[in-house]
Write a protein that binds this DNA or RNA. Structure first.
Lengths: 153, 153
DNA sequence: ACAGAGTGATTGAATTTTCAACAAGAATCC
DNA sequence: GGATTCTTGTTGAAAATTCAATCACTCTGT
């Protein structure tokens, strides 16, 4: 157990390819979104999650979970989005500690535009350059990874 | 062309699984490395690249390329690593503008320790939870992604 | 040789993210 | 009921990253 099992050559190759590809892709998507719509990926992600929630509204803790962000980070980020008028915060009836974040009309309209471009870019640099079977493999693999990571947290 | 081609249900599922899984994994690896060795992934990555270079030394621009970081970011990061005594900067003979970053003995010794733990964690949360064939698919896919991203940059 | 354009690396300020408290409300236990 | 503990969300300072400007050097063309 204390003896480290190194990765074999193929595993190492695949792992590195993943690291490099994913970092570059994330970088590109971020720049693309920022250049075209002035939004960071993390902010975009928040709008997406809200747009899919019932009443386009979620409690901060849930939103943090869905967007894979820390609560602290979410607080700051939502504050910024609130300044831009894309999100509004309101108190949550049942639990007086709770805060609801809600996507505004303006935020929704904005998201519709941004999502088009974003999807096109995701296609161009991810979906369309990957063999469909490999894409399925990625779905399977990263679901397993997310689950495994979830166990420990 | 201006008509957006949305992702079909399966593509969307796979893309989202990837986003969630990769963000959580990156997060976990970062925390793990920071907790056990006080280093961020980006810093670790730099040490790795240096350790593999001839004479454990690389010019800043090359290092930036290998580590998928901007030059500015690299300057700051290397400055930090230099403070810790893991990296030393020296001028580059041929081109007087150039700067070589070199892994120190201390940096190398440190890396040996950190790499063990890191590989173990990568195994536990990535390699070992993924079907070997799916891992190969990931390697293929992200190589293609990296190439595609490289075309435009 | 030399002006102009391009490259390599750094810097400091602005922005973003993390980290460590903190405050207020809910839940638990006796 | 009241003390204790846990959860939710925010805050400000510290750390990291991005952005724009800058400086020094090299290359190119004439």
């Amino acid at each position: 157990m204390s003896e480290p099992r190194w990765l074999d050559a193929a595993q190492q190759r695949d792992w590195r390819a993943y690291i490099e590809g994913s970092v570059r892709l994330a970088d590109l998507l971020d720049r693309d979104l920022k250049a075209k719509h002035g939004l960071a990926t993390a902010e975009y992600e928040i709008l997406v999650r809200l747009s899919e929630a019932p009443d386009r509204r979620l409690r901060m803790a849930e939103l943090a979970e869905y967007a894979s962000q820390s609560r602290s980070r979410l607080s700051h980020t939502v504050a910024r989005l609130e300044c831009k008028g894309f999100v509004a915060r309101g108190t949550c009836g049942a639990d007086k500690r709770g805060v609801n974040a809600e996507l505004t009309e303006k935020g929704f309209a904005f998201l519709e535009q941004a999502a088009r471009d974003h999807v096109a870019t995701v296609r161009e640099f991810f979906v369309d350059v990957i063999d469909p079977e490999d894409l399925e493999a990625i779905g399977r693999a990263f679901s397993a990874v997310a689950e495994q990571v979830g166990k420990v947290r």
